[in-house]
Design a protein around this nucleic acid. Structure first.
Lengths: 104, 104
DNA sequence: TTTTAATATTCCTTTACGAGAATATTCCTC
DNA sequence: GAGGAATATTCTCGTAAAGGAATATTAAAA
């Protein structure tokens, strides 16, 4: 369960969310991300650190640069979690009524 | 895009995440949630406020009590967003190689 | 209509975290 | 090996947000 919270927390920050949206197009360096989002390099590095720690992105160092790309696992796990709710939406038209009856 | 961030933010808080997990079993009152999670009533009310503002839960007042239940829309929207990544995971085995070649 | 139960709201304190600026690190190039 | 790019880390500060305690609100019940 902790992983899901970590993933959610990482994605819930606006700039990190934007970074993820950027990276869906393809791998990018820190500088490119900073330019695109008009953020300062240190902040981008810090956000990438969070994304990296949470497993959402992966780094590949090339010489001076570091190329970041999305990692599928956390996304898939999150989607899997959301999928476990599907049965509920269909199943629970009258659960509320049940509940009301139970409590008299 | 703002709704997704709102949803993510609401879910990213541990206690709120737990509340959501609790509510998936069925609708509950504030007191029941507080008991289950061993939280104080005011904090539960405050978290439920956030969840309610983000559309994740719905309230139904019955006399003294307020019964909270999950609302499907935000979950479905989030899942839909995650689903847009699917094509990427399959498509992008070699995108990194492409990138590396591009930048020589 | 006073009392009591359930919930919401407010105020205060504390903590988490993001931004900014400066500095450290790493690796290429000359 | 000195200088310069690209990136990471550290420090400080400001702010958003969570917890605690007290209080307000609402509705039922006596």
């Amino acid at each position: 369960m902790g992983e899901k919270l970590t993933t959610l927390h990482a994605l819930a920050e606006p700039n990190r969310f934007h970074i993820v949206e950027l990276l869906r197009v393809g791998p990018l360096t820190v500088g490119e991300i900073a330019d695109s989002l008009k953020l300062r390099q240190p902040q981008v590095s810090k956000h990438l650190r969070v994304l990296s720690d949470s497993g959402l992105v992966e780094v590949q160092p090339i010489a001076n640069r570091r190329i970041y790309k999305l990692q599928s696992q956390p996304f898939l796990e999150l989607e899997e979690w959301l999928d476990t709710f599907r049965s509920i939406w269909e199943d629970r038209f009258d659960r509320l009524d049940d509940y009301l009856k139970e409590m008299k």
